[in-house]
Design a protein around this nucleic acid. Structure first.
Lengths: 152, 152
DNA sequence: CGGTTATCTTGAATGATTCAAGACAACTGG
DNA sequence: CCAGTTGTCTTGAATCATTCAAGATAACCG
């Protein structure tokens, strides 16, 4: 696991036309450690480095970075919004129905079969978003709840 | 468009082991008229027939019918929850990025290619949920906002 | 037709997210 | 290297969808 090089984070923020600030760096670092996290989780991580940071600041940072294309926001049914740094590729997600663990999945077979709906009803489709629901390996074994974060 | 036969609705509720009540019938009727609607929209429709109905009742009905398998709940990113009567088949959805119009899409090509993630990371997948984002035919033409309901 | 129990009504709480005003700090040009 | 400009943060409060709780009510059983 390659923890992101310090200045590279700053660089990416700057080249998006945004000012480089500690809260922003901290948010990116937090998402480096936990690739799928919600505002609240990120807030917790950020506060460890910058105790003065407010939750609203985190929301602001997330909104700005997402708008700038540095983050991707996902909203699995039943959960609050999650953010991830993996962008550019249109990958999909695996969500554990029990513990809400989220895992990336590379785009399905070949040339994105999911991108072509059978009947597009006149829509001009630009994105296909796939969410796979199932039990993570952990939850398949322990039938007891093992983990439960970011559940709205 | 076949408006559901009056008693058939009652029958489906009853056979799900639930008591048949006016609010429940009204909710099903509302979803008959508008196949993808949220609690608020449904509440509005129900109130026309049964002015005494409370919003909480609608939430309760939706939860009960969904749990009973008579309704399916979908939660497109950025919207509040929507409900639909089309169940059993695992079809997908087309959502207009501008006006939030939702349309059904039959499950993609052949034997649900979307059901098999390339790397399942140990997950036992039981459902694949696909949401296609694009512009509905209406919004493709009129570049002005034409419709905007059920947007959280 | 009465009893049992699910369902509805009313009233209030929760959680995630957003809005607003002012304090502050990052980058620009000098 | 410093001051100005503007974007970003802090604080405080509001909003929205949804849920919880207690009691009144009505659906279904026999």
């Amino acid at each position: 696991m390659i923890t992101a090089p310090a200045d590279e984070l700053a660089q990416s923020i700057r080249s998006a036309g945004l000012k480089v600030t500690e809260p922003r760096l901290a948010v990116l670092r937090a998402l480096d450690a936990e690739p799928h996290a919600g505002a609240d989780t990120i807030f917790g991580a950020v506060k460890r480095d910058l105790p003065a940071t407010s939750l609203q600041a985190v929301y602001g940072v997330l909104a700005a970075l997402t708008a700038a294309g540095l983050l991707r926001k996902i909203e699995p049914a039943g959960s609050s919004a999650l953010y991830e740094r993996r962008i550019g590729d249109n990958h999909h997600h695996l969500v554990c129905s029990r513990c809400n663990l989220v895992q990336d999945v590379d785009c399905v077979v070949g040339e994105a079969p999911c991108l072509s709906a059978s009947n597009d009803g006149g829509f001009a489709i630009h994105t296909a978003e796939v969410t796979f629901w199932g039990l993570c390996s952990n939850c398949q074994q322990t039938q007891t709840v093992s983990r439960n974060k970011e559940t709205a």
